[in-house]
């Protein structure tokens, strides 16, 4: 005799309301691809499968993170790795009270300029950033259609906090040139703390001095390309990582290498300095 059980669904939970955010424990591993077509997978790793009512899905973990570019730089120019870690993680790690994680753009950057920004400034910025075309996994372009952009450079009347003191700048001329004096930027993050958009805000007073305005837009763009921090005391005034950056016609080699390192491997889930070191020594 078979006995069949018939369950009745009866719901007895108290009504509630809840906000949207929710995530899992962090795993610094490549993500999973789930496909019902085996040919769509690269079959580069251990494969599991799952059976549904009709179809079979194959599960494949992405390729292991490739840290070879970082390793090469560590061997040939360890100072650069130091600069990178300071600018990407700002001296923090998993045991810090606040832990800064890496921030990468997950999509090509499409920049829209406020109509009131002088055309020659815009052209200069475009020209300046042409030489980053050889940075893998990262690209920028410019658009006149704001609805297609994910990055806007916007003029505002809002007063920005003068951060000269924070960066130990007492010289008035240098303080005037500090990016975070009259400008700031805000990134839009996805659920993994990577970047999907950005607004760079510039106080309209900056229009008074086109050379400073140009310098600040170039520096602000660079910093927001990886939410890079300026490094106090860095003796490289040609680098955007310096609070006392002196305007250059081309991107410095240090900055170019920082960008190349940062985008040499895309981490679908942002990582912190502790995970970075683990991966580097793996």
């Amino acid at each position: 005799m078979y006995l069949f059980y018939f369950y009745i669904l009866v719901c007895v939970y108290a009504g509630e309301a809840q906000d949207a955010s929710a995530t899992w424990d962090h795993v610094a591993e490549p993500r999973l691809k789930l496909e019902d077509d085996l040919n769509a997978l690269e079959r580069n790793s251990e494969m599991a499968y799952t059976v549904s009512s009709k179809d079979t899905f194959y599960v494949e973990r992405g390729k292991p993170f490739d840290m070879s570019y970082f390793k090469t730089i560590m061997r040939t120019n360890p100072d650069l790795i130091g600069y990178y870690m300071k600018s990407a993680f700002y001296f923090t790690a998993s045991n810090s009270s606040y832990n800064y994680r890496s921030r990468q753009w997950m999509v090509p950057v499409k920049i829209y300029f406020d109509k009131d920004i002088p055309r020659n400034i815009k052209k200069e910025v475009e020209k300046f950033y042409k030489n980053i075309e050889d940075v893998p996994n990262f690209s920028i372009s410019f658009t006149n259609d704001i609805d297609k952009a994910n990055y806007q450079i916007k003029l505002t009347n809002a007063i920005m906090i003068d951060e000269a003191e924070r960066y130990g700048i007492t010289d008035e001329f240098k303080a005037r040139r500090l990016f975070f004096n009259g400008c700031n930027y805000t990134v839009i993050s996805d659920g993994s703390k990577n970047i999907m958009g950005c607004t760079l805000k510039i106080n309209k007073k900056e229009l008074e001095d086109p050379s400073i305005l140009l310098s600040k837009i170039k520096q602000g763009l660079f910093l927001s390309f990886g939410r890079f921090f300026m490094i106090n005391g860095i003796q490289l005034n040609e680098s955007f990582l310096s609070a006392t950056y002196e305007n250059q016609d081309t991107l410095s080699l240090v900055d170019l290498e920082i960008l190349k390192m940062h985008y040499s491997q895309i981490f679908d889930e942002s990582i912190d300095a502790s995970e970075f070191i683990q991966l580097l020594h793996h």
């Binding site: 789930l34 997950m106 996805d190 990577n194």
Partner: peptide
């Protein structure tokens, strides 16, 4: 945090 970014069940953004 596990599914590739293409999926709508994933927490990361993708073009």
């Amino acid at each position: 945090k596990e599914f590739e970014c293409q999926s709508y069940f994933s927490n990361c953004y993708s073009n």
